[in-house]
Design a protein around this nucleic acid. Structure first.
Ligand SMILES: [Zn+2]
Ligand SMILES: [Zn+2]
Ligand SMILES: [Zn+2]
Ligand SMILES: [Zn+2]
Lengths: 170, 170
DNA sequence: ACTTGTCATGTTATTTCATATCATGTATTG
DNA sequence: CAATACATGATATGAAATAACATGACAAGT
C-alpha cells in the first residue's frame, strides 16, 4: 500500500487491492504492525492465529472459514471448524481481520492499527476485495438515526460491483 | 422467545422507524402498493409469495428463512427450504423485501414502489429493524471507488446499535 | 382440443456456514 | 509448584442455502 511517499489526499481514500503494489512489503508491514499491537496490548498472536492472518494477508480476497480450515489442516494444525472460527474470532475482535457479511467470508484489514470503520468494495466477477474508510454516521443514515433516536454502534458497508480489471475486460 | 409475558402494548407492534403507528393500515398500504406494482409489471404475486410478504409486513423485524418456512408449513404450503427461498428470491428481486446480510434474515421493504437503496438500523437487543435511505456512493466510499476505478452496482449498509426503547431501558 | 413452452411448486438430497460441549494442554502468576 | 486462565483439539449438532429432479398450472400457437 505505502509503496512510495506521496501527498495524503488520494492515499487516504484509495483502497488497497485493486492496484499494483509491492505485495511482499505490504504483507510484512501489516504483520509487523499487528505484532506490535499485540505485544503492546498483551494479546497472544499464537501460531494458528498468526497462520490465519498470514493466509488472509497473502490474498487481497475474502476467504471462507472452511477454505482457511483446509489450509490449516494442510499445515498440520487442527482440522475441525472451531479451530478456524476461534482464530478468526480473535482476529476480528481485535480488528486485524474483517468479516464480509455479504460473502460469509473474511479479509485481512488493510489499515491495521488505525482505529477505523471500514467499507468494502467487492468485485462480483473476481472476488477481489478492497478496503476503504467510511463514515456512514455522517450522511443520510446518521440523520435518520438521530431522528429516530437510534444509537449506532457499528456499521457494515459493503459495495458490490466491478473492479477496474474486470471492467476493462467487459 | 417470541411469547414473553409482557402486556401487549405498543412495544410489541412498534418499530417502522421505531415509532408508534397504525400498523394495520401500514400493512394494508404496503400490500396494496405491491399488488399495484405487480399487476402493472406483469409479476405474479402467487399465494406463497403473498403469504411470505404478509408475514414479513406483519413484523417490523427480520425473519430467517426457516422461521418463514415454519409458518408456511403451518398454513399448508410446501415445507421444504426451497419453497421459502424461492418466494424470498422473488420478493427480493422485485424490491418488496430486503435481505439483512448481518442477520441472514429478511425484512419487508418500508418504501415499496419507490426505487431506493436502503440502509438499515438493527437493534441488537430487540432485533427491531428500521429502514432508511442511503447514498453511500456520495460520501467517502464514492470517492474511494472513483479513485480506484471501481464501479459500484449495489451497496449494503447496515447499522447495528440500540433502538430508542432499548436505550431508555438501559 | 392438443401440443408446446414457460413459469411456479414440491420433494429429496447435499453442501456450506457456524456453534455447543467436553476433554486436554499450556502459559502465567501468586 | 499449585491454582488459574486461556488456548487447542475432537465430537457432535445446528442453521442457512442450494442442486437436481419431478410435477402441476397456464397461456399461446396449431
Ligand atoms: Zn498487498
Ligand atoms: Zn480495516
Ligand atoms: Zn407497521
Ligand atoms: Zn426498501
Amino acid at each position: 500500500m505505502t509503496s512510495d511517499a506521496r501527498p495524503a489526499s488520494v492515499e487516504d481514500t484509495a483502497p488497497v487491492g485493486f492496484q499494483e503494489h509491492d505485495h511482499q512489503t505490504c504483507v510484512e508491514t501489516a504483520l509487523t504492525s499487528v505484532e506490535a499491537q499485540c505485544s503492546a496490548e498483551g494479546l497472544r498472536l499464537t501460531p494458528v492465529r498468526r497462520k490465519v492472518l498470514e493466509m488472509l494477508l497473502q490474498e487481497h480476497r475474502a476467504l471462507g472459514a472452511y477454505a482457511i480450515l483446509d489450509q490449516l489442516r494442510a499445515e498440520g494444525f487442527g482440522s475441525q471448524p472451531p479451530v478456524a472460527y476461534r482464530a478468526l474470532e480473535f482476529l476480528v475482535q481485535n480488528g486485524f481481520v474483517h468479516k464480509i457479511e455479504r460473502l460469509n467470508a473474511f479479509v485481512a484489514c488493510s489499515h491495521p492499527g488505525q482505529s477505523h470503520s471500514p467499507a468494502f468494495m467487492i468485485c462480483r466477477k473476481c472476488d477481489a476485495v478492497a478496503e476503504a474508510q467510511s463514515s456512514p454516521a455522517k450522511g443520510a443514515l446518521g440523520a435518520a438515526a438521530r431522528a429516530a433516536g437510534f444509537e449506532i454502534e457499528r456499521t457494515v458497508v459493503e459495495a458490490e460491483g466491478l473492479c477496474p480489471d474486470c471492467t476493462e475486460k467487459a
